[in-house]
Design a protein around this nucleic acid. Structure first.
Lengths: 217, 217, 217, 217
DNA sequence: TAATAATCGAGACGGTACGTCAGGTCTTGTT
DNA sequence: AACAAGACCTGACGTACCGTCTCGATTATTA
């Protein structure tokens, strides 16, 4: 009675853990240096000191490989408690900006997003791995601000509430991404401050007018 | 007295204008249907009823071809006079959203932007063709609002002024793009209204506090 | 009554004679330098300082062009009277050898002959231009030797006679060509002497035995 | 004691021997049907049921491919013992003639020889593969005739000897090639008989006069 | 002195093949 | 079993050349 078999160990030589790590590293490095379209599976394998076969045994194709490598980049994104709502937002804006400005990240992210435009499976993959993870940061930031009394508690209507969160999320993430990738300007403390002021002030002012005049009314 | 340079006609058979148009159309159609990475020069040529060589005579490679085809998509973006600042912004937000939601556009744009991440030449190409064009819309909208008295005249410091315009541009374009491409939600009148209110209110509230407390002070 | 109209002069600009010459020269030079397969019509035209169109107006394709250029090379082959049959043959052998050793000629000839292997039209073209011209040399040499009494008069049977001429022609031309092109050895006075002795002696000895024992008998 | 190098087996999947054979066959067939200049690598690959890349992995370009295919054609050329010198020569003449008259061979040979005119590497390649192989036939024929007493033993001077062999080789091979390719007449028993008689008689008669009167004397 | 008619240079055009490269699969022998 | 090595098929790439086709600009002959 082999107990509960948490890992269905099969016979034969087990997969090498070093290989996994080496491939992921090599993929990210290659992504940084040459970008998605010029990244070749052969080069990744060579750089990782691994046979192409080994690579394909783990990921079914180039897309899978790259997406997984990219998703891991966003693991580090956290929301530190900076003391106030304004400070919290500025912190996360700059953290996100720093992440995107790191040479490879923006390229990787854009590459993956672009590829997703025609691949629904990949698209959902990205939502799970990247978007939802970031959206939780927004939610956590709001909770914290509510505890501090900087924001009013959730509105009565949960739908209305979700719409608000989505809006804020699109505005924050969108602006940072756009400034970094399209305008190609740095997300420095100055910009982060102005931006945060803009949306928090707007949020405060607008939240007064919204409940009374919903579009559907 | 027309005098000079009636036509700098070069020798030899002139290039076919129909070919140019057919190729651009075929490229955009293909981009919509299969995306950047699966688009092949051969298919574009065939669809355009043109030899592959004709295509390479005009654009040096697949990248050049696609970027030029995509840039043209943004030619139609205009800023109609909708009567008020709020209405103007909502109009342009929805127009941009509509453009991005048109199946091919988002794919094309993303593809091109993603590709630009590792190609400085392409990047500048895009800035010229797409970004600067849109930034002019923001400037025009501000002028109009200033004429209406909805916004104060330009600040004394032109640098400060430019920073403000850039911020607004990043916020608007970024949010619309993010909602469309990443969140994959529609840019409808409801969302456009909320978003516009948010930033205009924020702008009004923040502009009161900014001049007094510049970062550098 | 405009008499016999030796030149049916038509209206319009006449063809440039310089162009013709320049093209032929350029073709031969190119043939020498790069060979048939790497010779391009474009390069020939450029080297001749002429438009490609002008070239195609005179020769319908690359093959025609090259064959005509090559055929002209054989115009100079003559049979000088060297005093005796042995001397005559040695003379023509060495003249032919010299011609083939001139850098471009062998290349040109081989190129054209090789191409003819699959092009019956071209093949006939070559026979007319090159082979028949040389065969006349053999006939002339025989006549002269007969006048000198070095060779007996024509046999009674004209067929038999033709077979003999063909044999001699194949042996002489074949040996010289083979030594030059395949063995890549020079046709010098030494070799020419040995070779001539060989076939003249053979001819003398064999002609005694042939008539009596024809194959068909 | 086999000791060393039982098999220098390299890692990885071994090359397919069937592929090699199929490609060679396909090349020769194509050469026969369409000739060098109209033979395309793509067609050869398709006919061989092999990918174009497989072909390029073995031969660096179309030229290499064709030369190797052609050289193999001459492998079959042997010198059977026909009983007498005259019969031996007639045999080899006709065998060589038959080979050249086989539709593809002449084309292939000429094509390759022509190409060699501008490619020293190819030229040497051909010498090794084709010329030297045939020259050995001449040497073997002489040995046999000497054993039979039909020819005198080697002359004292080895140089003189080599010159004689070369002469005979050029005359035999040259005449057969010329008759087949240029005159485009068949090498039948009649012609072979006449030709053999001519050169053997010539050889017998001339060899009497040569030693006494060498050119250098 | 025009009008006409052919040539010329220039170069775009439709094709076809080239030789290269990457993706992904398959086949060896080794660990 | 997994692994390294590398051959293999597929299919697109970007290039070169062929032979054709417009163009405008020359030159001659004819009216």
């Amino acid at each position: 009675m082999p107990s509960s078999a948490p890992s269905p160990r099969r016979a034969g030589r087990p997969r090498s853990a070093e290989a996994d790590a080496a491939i992921m590293d090599a993929t990210r490095e290659a992504l940084v240096e040459v970008g998605w379209s010029k990244l070749t599976v052969g080069h990744v394998a060579a750089r990782a000191g691994v046979a192409k076969t080994t690579l394909y045994r783990r990921w079914s194709n180039k897309g899978e490989l790259v997406v997984n490598a990219v998703a891991a980049l966003f693991d580090e994104l956290e929301l530190p408690d900076c003391g106030s709502l304004q400070a919290d937002v500025e912190c996360v804006v700059m953290a996100f900006g720093d992440l995107l400005e790191r040479p490879g990240t923006s390229a990787s992210l854009m590459a993956v997003v672009a590829e997703s435009t025609h691949d629904p499976v990949l698209r959902e993959h990205i939502r799970e791995a990247i978007v939802e993870r970031q959206k939780r940061l927004v939610l956590k930031g709001r909770e914290r601000a509510q505890e501090r009394g900087e924001l009013p508690p959730d509105a009565g209507d949960p739908d209305e509430d979700a719409r608000l969160v989505d809006l804020i999320f699109d505005v924050i993430a969108g602006a940072v991404v756009h400034r970094t990738l399209v305008s190609a300007e740095p997300v420095d403390a100055d910009w982060a401050g102005r931006f945060t002021t803009l949306i928090l002030q707007g949020l405060a002012a607008a939240s007064a007018s919204w409940p009374e005049s919903p579009r559907s009314a």
